[in-house]
Simulated assay, not measured.
Amino acid sequence: MTQMTGGCLCGAKRFTADMPDKLHAYLCHCRMCQKASGNVSLALVNVRHADVSWNEEPDWYQSSPIARRPFCATCGTSLGFRFMEGSENMDLTVAAFDDPSVFTPDSHFGAESIHRAWLNTEGLLEQRTDDYDKLQDMWRKAGAEPPKL
């Protein structure tokens, strides 16, 4: 198993996860995940709950009678999903990992709610944040350096 780390935007909730050799990363399109993330889908990776350790226990939101979701109450970052009973696994949000580039989705879940126009965006204009001078200037005027890529 490989250990991977991640956490929320403000850094208050950090985790270390022992990752299985065969990763199951997927996009969930169910309405619950759409609402919880404020997005058209939620990228998740499935891990054993016992293989995740937190520097500080995340806040938990009981999003339904059968599931709850870890998050950071300080910055609002969504950190995953877990059924309350019947599963030794949980999901962590892909973007919460320090290096999300290692994950490739292998499936879609909640297909009844897929917004197909958002699945293949190849060919749309692509703008890099480090090439957007107005954004870079805003960071510097605020007395801070832009986030590192």
Rank of each mutant, 00 (worst) to 15 (best):
W54F: 07
R69H: 03
R31L: 13
D131F: 14
Q127L: 06
P146I: 02
M84W: 10
L92T: 01
F109L: 15
V102T: 01
L135Y: 04
K148Y: 05
D137S: 10
W54S: 00
S41L: 12
A144G: 14
P147D: 02
S87A: 05
T93D: 05
R69A: 03
N120Q: 03
F109Y: 15
T16N: 05
H108Q: 13
Q34Y: 13
R68S: 15
P100E: 07
A111T: 13
A12R: 12
N55A: 06
F109G: 14
H49W: 13
Y61V: 09
K141R: 09
S41R: 14
V52C: 08
R140A: 04
R14N: 05
G6T: 01
K22T: 08
N89L: 12
E145K: 05
E57T: 08
D21M: 04
L125E: 10
M19K: 01
N39T: 12
T121R: 10
A117C: 13
M1G: 12
H49T: 12
R69K: 11
A111S: 14
P146Y: 05
Q34L: 14
M32L: 15
M19L: 06
H49G: 15
C10L: 01
Y132T: 09
Q3P: 11
F109P: 13
P70H: 06
F71C: 00
I66C: 13
Y26W: 06
F83Y: 10
F97P: 03
A67T: 04
A95E: 11
G6D: 04
K22W: 05
D98P: 02
Q62R: 10
L27G: 12
Q127I: 05
N89Q: 11
C75H: 04
P70D: 07
G7E: 00
R68T: 04
T104R: 13
R116W: 14
Q127Y: 08
C30E: 10
C28L: 07
E122S: 04
L125S: 11
K13V: 07
D21L: 11
E88A: 15
I114S: 06
S87I: 00
Y61Q: 05
G110K: 09
A17V: 10
G80L: 08
F15G: 00
T16E: 04
H24V: 10
R31E: 15
V94H: 06
L119G: 05
S63N: 03
W60E: 03
P20M: 01
A95V: 11
C8R: 00
Q3C: 09
W139S: 02
Q136R: 02
G80D: 02
I114G: 01
M84Q: 12
E88N: 15
K148A: 03
L23F: 03
H108Y: 08
L135S: 10
Y26S: 07
W118Y: 11
F109V: 14
G38T: 09
D98G: 03
